[in-house]
Amino acid sequence: MRKHVRLSKVLAGCGSLFRTVMIVGIGFVILYPLLVQISSAFMAPGDLNDPTVHWIPKHTTLDNFGKAVEVLKYDRAVRNTLLLSLTVSLVQLISCTFIGYGFARYKFPGSRLLFGLVLLTLIVPPQMIMVPLFLNFRFFNLFGLLGNGINLLGSFWPYLMMGITGTGIKNALFIYITRQYFAGMSESLEEAAYIDGAGSIRTFFKVMLPNAVPVLVVVFLFSFVWVWNDMFYAQMFLTGTDNLALAIADLPLLTRYLYGDHERNTLIHNAATLLYIAPMLLLYTVLQRFFIESVEKTGLVG
């Protein structure tokens, strides 16, 4: 019996050692590129080829950041992208909550079919409808109602229109998440509200929404991050405007044209990448607890 206990203790020790090694290793793989970027963003061009330099630069400089800010037009681009991400994710949040609630609580003829269509929009690659979408927004005329058509490219309108109708970036996923959450809520809450004389709209706003705050936060965060990181829709709708993702995409061409040599460009690229992901990192570190906990608590699961 005693031997058994000792054996199981040894096994448990081995298990936790294995776990620690795995977690540290995987964490290293995830963090390594970030660490390389941080360390090399502060290097002077000579340090990159210097074999004696490991991680800590010999000539610390902020020059890379200055150049990156200049090439990216960072101040304007970051303001635009922030505005875009905020408005679009708010709009998407509102529409997806509505639609998800409708699917969760009301069964009407065709509702299952419609929900199937929501999932269909998730699995069809956006590249497939890219060209028609682009042309429709380039010559926007509402099926011929507006005559020759307006050019909506370069404005937020395509994003807003797709967001408000639940067909924007990954919106099907958000509809799915909110639907699962509302479906898991107890129905007696609503029944009580109905008996007290509240209509369905009022019940939704006064009773259901306040109880759905965790899932709302998750949807908002996800959609904010996805709009911020998105390049596909930005390339389609916002070409020619100051957008951070587009600026990053154009960076290699610009730096090669402006500065020429590889080493310095690599350093500037690293600095630019840090500038691009810094707001997201900041948001994540501030909200990570909330984010992880709420993901666990919400019915991301059925």
Binding site: S95, F98, L117, L133, M161, M162, T165
Partner: peptide, 20 residues
């Protein structure tokens, strides 16, 4: 129920089915 879901119906037709 349909009212709640209707934004998606519009969006599906305009920004998905039609381009599709």
């Amino acid at each position: 129920g349909f009212m709640f879901v209707s934004p998606f119906v519009i969006g599906f037709i305009c920004f998905f089915l039609y381009p599709f």
